[in-house]
Write a protein that binds this DNA or RNA. Structure first.
Lengths: 189, 189
DNA sequence: CCTCACATTAACTGATCGGTCAATATTTTT
DNA sequence: AAAAATATTGACCGATCAGTTAATGTGAGG
């Protein structure tokens, strides 16, 4: 598979960017840390931005795969899965190396509305909200779209505060808010 | 006042950093945009980080002053003021030049736990939470500290999604969550 | 064994990075 | 007004930035 080298490069670059930031990480550092020379990197990716976009695609796949699977494992019904998201978040916050959300950081560093990195970062959040919306619809809530948007706000708020405070507590606090929301949320029929 | 020049430099640097990011903005750009030569800047600030810290101090004062005053104007009771925070946020999101929270972006670019910029960014969030806590106590809620932390999560989540989506809607969505929280929040005696 | 296509490399480009310096204005003190 | 202290400047420092080039190494097909 000719993609193996490329994938490994992406995964190693992901770690370096996640730990050190995008603008703060030069391509020479990426080359040294991944063990791939700069020229070879530029054979796979036209620009640094292209590499970052590939890294974000990988992160999007990894994170959604992990989160959705964890929500399934921790909750049996769709409603329980929605709540279980915050337990999964807490696991993430407690895991070694938690450094906040890569997409929030990417859109903070590339804040130009037209920037592909900015658009792709928000696309990740929309994919998360889509999943929440499907679960909310399955659970029989009357306005799944609106419920999903509110859950996304809770999730991002918890991540930001957990990252800034270096404390996993926001996961449980957001979970309590989520319970309050679901308890008074209108259902179909 | 010998501080006028320095203050004006800080305010102009604030705009440039807020628009373009911290690592992405060089000191030469700061010099050109503020009309102050680099050598003069370094007479006032030992390093770029020191300038950034001064900028963040200014932003902290400006933002808290604006937000708290706006909450007072829009709400007569402490409880109304807590809710009014989300109306103030909506005004901010709709104001021209909204580019997200400067402290979230600063802590995203300087994520090292020991970094003074990171610590000062979180200190701003703690000061906001302190104010929410005072209001929650005045309003007679049983656990003001916990309530304040949950409001902070709502606020940061709304800001992050509003900035990424370029849409002010999260302010109103977070406000609805805040209403649900207060409606079922236990009060003293 | 030879060749040809491709992968990989160290060395280099001009530009910009954070920060400094020697020289020149400008202000303050006498 | 002369002298001392302070502000301000453009030019410069080595390091690093994103990206390129010319040369070398490597493996498959004949």
């Amino acid at each position: 598979m000719s993609h193996n080298k490329r994938d490994e490069l992406i995964r190693n670059a992901l770690k370096v960017f996640y730990r050190n930031g995008f603008n703060a990480t030069g391509m020479d550092k990426i080359a040294k840390e991944t063990g791939v020379s700069k020229t070879s990197i530029y054979k796979h990716f036209r620009t640094k931005d292209d590499l970052i976009l590939a890294v974000l695609r990988q992160r999007d796949a990894d994170f959604r795969n992990w989160l959705f699977r964890r929500m399934e494992d921790l909750g049996s019904t769709p409603e329980e899965q929605l709540i279980a998201m915050f337990d999964a978040l807490e696991e993430w916050f407690n895991a070694g190396g938690f450094q906040g959300c890569m997409f929030i950081k990417a859109s903070a560093e590339f804040q130009n509305k037209d920037d592909a990195i900015n658009r792709q970062s928000y696309a990740h959040k929309q994919l998360l909200a889509d999943h929440f919306k499907r679960l909310a619809a399955s659970a029989g809530f009357r306005d799944p779209h609106d419920l999903a948007r509110r859950f996304l706000i809770l999730k991002e708020g918890a991540i930001v505060i957990a990252a800034m405070s270096h404390d996993p507590a926001p996961a449980a606090e957001a979970k309590r808010i989520a319970h309050q929301i679901l308890d008074s949320e209108p259902r179909t029929s």
